[in-house]
Nucleic acid binder design. Structure first.
Length: 812
RNA sequence: GCCCGGGUGGCGAAAUGGUGAGACGCGGGGGACUUAAAAUCCCCUGACCGCGAGGUCAUGUGGGUUCGAUUCCCACCCCGGGUACCA
């Protein structure tokens, strides 16, 4: 035994102190604020900005932001100029509802919440450029949201019409579609009613085909692309016109024109404009009663119950294919919003029509069958064509024709007789942007009795949202802004006569549909976005966010970008080159929510473990794109991992040479981490670094500086503060994020010997070590030298399969 | 109902252009150090059989293809998310 020499004093890893120090330095040195006009390879790394709730930053927010931040930091280490901005989606019903709930004014509450979010975000170690922050409820921002509305208005893409909206009778307010869950108000659970109000719309439907076509060329998560395709909902079919005696023709939309010989009635939505004209005197009372019933019926019984109800109008239409008279009905299973608001009833081949036929004893005719033998087989349920080989039956001269062919042939035949035209229908509706609420950008329109709706001149923007004490919505369906007389009555910009302002505000989703355009130009007050700067930085290089916005925000943003492109304001028409949807963080198998009592406060975790450990742990839970189940216990492992890195760095030696075995592992790790990060395989990247640290610290040997220096760069995207501190300790002068990404030597990844699995009859019985370029004979010989393997080999093998470098399978 | 995901140890999860299942981490067990504890370090840890070498079983269920299937094909069950009378 020798005397233990005095160990060199290693400073303890103190995350709180290190993180505070480096956050301060980043701030002072502007480390995270790139000069947007300079630098090579601009890389716009975007994350979905949060709405500043009263509860503070959620763990899900931090999961999302950390994942995006790691990606951005990695790009920077690769030498790109990375712009990673942040802002606050602070307008909107969510914020306003929260204000109502706690009895505060949103104009006072919002700055407080934003301030709290800023504090929380700054502690998380994100590479955010705070010099370009945007706050959507700030007049300097919403001035341009209003400007955007005016551009769309000029392009004819904004219009006003009466439309049904969701109305909560308890909260006395209009609700957004996304605030209605199963027909109930998300907040108070009251049944939602429909109300007819004058609304502003954007013509998103004009762009349906382009929005659909472009999806093919987007580098987006497949789930998101599929959700958008479904939402746009393209259907090919035809408009078919039915003659009605003594009344206007009725047009229907169908995707199955081939089944027209089986159409035994016609049915209109209750709101259909022709209803009054069609109803006969004898049926007047019955129809009125039905219309009254459907009007007052709540959304639940109409949409969830799905029981078929309806009433006969007394009118008779002519089926243009058969020439037969068929009754005209009214039923609420037909939706006015889709197609023409009228459908032909084909009970044999549509489930809903079949139910309707059963409810009202209407005739059912089979016009499609799997083969001619089934032509008169009775139908116990609707027969929906199952294969391309299904044939038309009972369809005059089309009988025997396969369905795909018949779809076209029947339309062509009807077209000749002027009863049909092929059409494409989309599920995508125009975007209703009016909100009869307070906390949003006032829509910049002035109504004048003489001039009609007049846009507010651009030099008069913003139309400032007035501070009113009573901002609560009421039962009238009119925005609270109408109560502010002084604000409400203004001279017409065209003729000067006193007119009235539009009192609706615009949808919160409009604020977020263009924020990514604002970021680079956030400090400009003269333009919404600088043309040249936009050209340099957009479209967004990588966007990371939650898939809950797959069809709302992401579709609106695409639409706005397309509209601005067409208006000559942008050179590109797709805003996000690459989009990746991250998963959701749950806890104990359930969504985190206050009511379940399973919410985790990120502040406490950062206090206890440090932001670096917390960030790394969140990414280690599971695959980033799948989300993960948050457990409290696992973070200790990540903290130990960082402790070991800290220890290795501080006790490393700078003389002599690095260990070749360790170096080989290091280069494999550089390779692995560099492949995993861009693919968002964060959990496996961390596992690879942990493996390396285990190798690094195996045996009692001194760790060499060359063995830890690249490790510090690898871990930097995940744990930026400790990486900076270690980098500085090892002699780095600039930020580790300006030091570049370590390179690896591919030659070091190839070892001289390989382990080959030896299988007998497909079952692995052992392994042998052979040279990298060993032949089948070499491997065989090596295997037979092992008695435990040799004992399985008796006689001549039937077959031997050799996969070089992997296995040898001897089939006996 | 439809459209996406996904079912692997006590737990979170790795691994597939077909080839050694369970990397990495948590938890658990044992040990070292310590007066003691914490921290740290080392070993073990899918189940079953066996003193051992070793063997058998095992990736939701049932089939199939193959020398070989967690991986590919067919059918089914379960869980999560989205969407819903869209004609």
């Amino acid at each position: 035994m020798t005397d233990t020499p005095a160990l060199p004093e290693i400073p303890a890893y103190d995350p709180a102190a290190i993180e505070a120090t480096w956050q301060q330095r980043w701030h002072e040195q502007g480390t995270n604020s790139p000069e947007l006009w300079q630098g090579s390879e601009p890389y716009y790394q975007l994350m979905m900005f949060p709405y500043p709730s009263g509860e503070g930053l959620h763990i899900g927010n931090l999961f999302a932001f950390t994942g995006a931040d790691i990606h951005g930091r990695f790009q920077r280490l690769q030498g790109r100029t990375v712009f990673e901005p942040i802002g606050f989606d602070s307008f909107g019903i969510q914020t306003e509802n929260y204000a109502i709930k706690v009895g505060a004014h949103p104009a006072k509450l919002t700055p407080r919440n934003v301030e709290r979010f800023r504090g929380q975000l700054k502690r998380a170690g994100l590479m955010l450029d705070w010099s370009k922050e945007v706050v959507t409820s700030d007049p300097s921002y919403y001035k341009w949201t209003q400007w955007l509305f005016l551009q769309l208005f000029r392009q004819g893409l904004a219009y006003k019409k009466a439309a049904a909206v969701n109305w909560c009778p308890n909260d006395k307010t209009v609700l957004a579609n996304e605030q209605v869950k199963d027909g109930h108000c998300e907040r108070c659970n009251a049944l939602v009613e429909q109300r007819l109000l004058e609304q502003w719309f954007f013509r998103t439907s004009n762009f349906a085909q382009r929005l659909l076509d472009n999806i093919a060329s987007l580098d987006w998560s497949e789930v998101t692309r599929q959700a958008q395709r479904n939402w746009i909902g393209r259907s090919e079919g035809a408009h078919v016109t039915f003659r009605v005696a003594n009344a206007h023709d009725v047009a229907v939309f169908t995707t199955r024109p081939d089944t027209i010989f089986g159409a035994t009635w016609l049915v209109l939505a209750p709101e259909h404009p022709l209803v009054q004209q069609l109803v006969t005197p004898a049926q007047h009372a019955a129809v009125s009663a039905y219309l009254e019933r459907t009007k007052t019926q709540d959304v639940v019984s109409r949409k969830v119950n799905k029981e078929k109800t309806g009433v006969f109008t007394g009118a008779v239409a002519i089926n243009p294919a058969t020439g037969q008279p068929i009754p005209v009905w009214i039923a609420d299973y037909v939706l006015m919003e889709y197609g023409t608001g009228a459908v032909m009833g084909v009970p044999g081949h549509d489930e809903r029509d079949f139910e309707f036929a059963q409810a009202f004893a209407l005739p059912i005719v089979r016009v499609v069958a799997a083969s001619m033998d089934d032509a008169s087989a009775p139908l116990a349920e609707a027969y929906v064509a199952k294969s391309d080989t299904d044939l038309l039956v009972n369809s005059a001269h089309f009988t025997g024709m396969p369905v795909p062919l018949a779809k076209k042939a029947v339309v062509a035949w009807l077209e000749e007789r002027q009863s049909a035209t092929p059409v494409v229908n989309y599920r995508l509706n125009d975007w209703c942007i009016s909100r009869q609420r307070y906390w949003g950008p006032p829509i910049p329109i002035i109504y004048c009795d003489a001039c009609g709706p007049v846009p507010v001149p651009e030099d008069q923007l913003p139309v400032v949202l007035p501070l009113i004490e009573n901002f609560r919505p009421d039962d009238s369906g009119i925005s609270p802004l109408a109560r502010h007389d002084e604000w409400y009555r203004v001279p017409c910009p065209t003729c000067g006569v006193i007119g009235r302002r539009e009192t609706d505000v615009s949808d919160n989703f409009l604020d977020s549909a263009w924020y990514f355009l604002r970021y680079p130009s956030a400090d400009r007050s003269d333009v919404p976005f600088d043309r040249a700067l936009t050209q340099r930085w957009l479209p967004v290089t990588t966007y990371i966010g939650g898939n809950e916005h797959a069809v709302l925000h992401l579709l609106y943003a695409r639409f706005i970008t397309m509209a601005l492109h067409d208006g000559g304001f942008l050179d590109f028409e797709e805003p996000f080159t690459r989009f990746r949807a991250h998963g959701m963080i749950i806890r104990e198998g359930a969504k985190m929510s206050k009511s379940k009592g399973n919410v985790v406060n990120p502040d406490d975790l950062i206090d206890r473990w440090g932001a670096d450990s917390f960030r790394t742990y969140l990414m280690f839970l599971g695959p980033y794109e799948d989300g993960g189940d948050y457990r409290d216990s696992g973070i200790t492992g990540v903290r130990r991992f960082l402790d070991r890195i800290w220890g290795s760095v501080h006790e490393c030696v700078r003389t002599g040479a690095a260990d070749p075995t360790v170096l080989r592992k290091l280069h494999a790790t550089i390779n692995k981490v560099g492949e995993d990060i861009p693919a968002l395989g964060y959990n496996t990247a961390i596992a690879a670094m942990m493996e390396y640290v285990n190798v690094l610290r195996a045996n009692e040997r001194a760790v060499h500086r060359d063995e830890v220096l690249p490790l510090v760069q690898l871990v930097a995207p995940f744990a930026p503060h400790i990486a900076e501190a270690c980098w500085e300790f090892l002699g780095g002068h600039e930020s580790v994020f300006d030091s570049g990404w370590p390179t690896y030597d591919p030659a070091l990844l190839i070892s001289d010997t390989v382990t080959i699995a030896i299988q007998i009859n497909g079952k692995t019985r052992g392994t042998v070590q052979v040279a990298r370029d060993a032949t089948q004979a070499d491997v065989s010989a090596a295997a037979l030298r092992d008695p435990n393997l040799a004992r399985f080999v008796v006689g001549e093998p039937k077959k031997v399969i050799h996969v070089p470098g992997r296995l040898l399978n001897i089939v006996m």
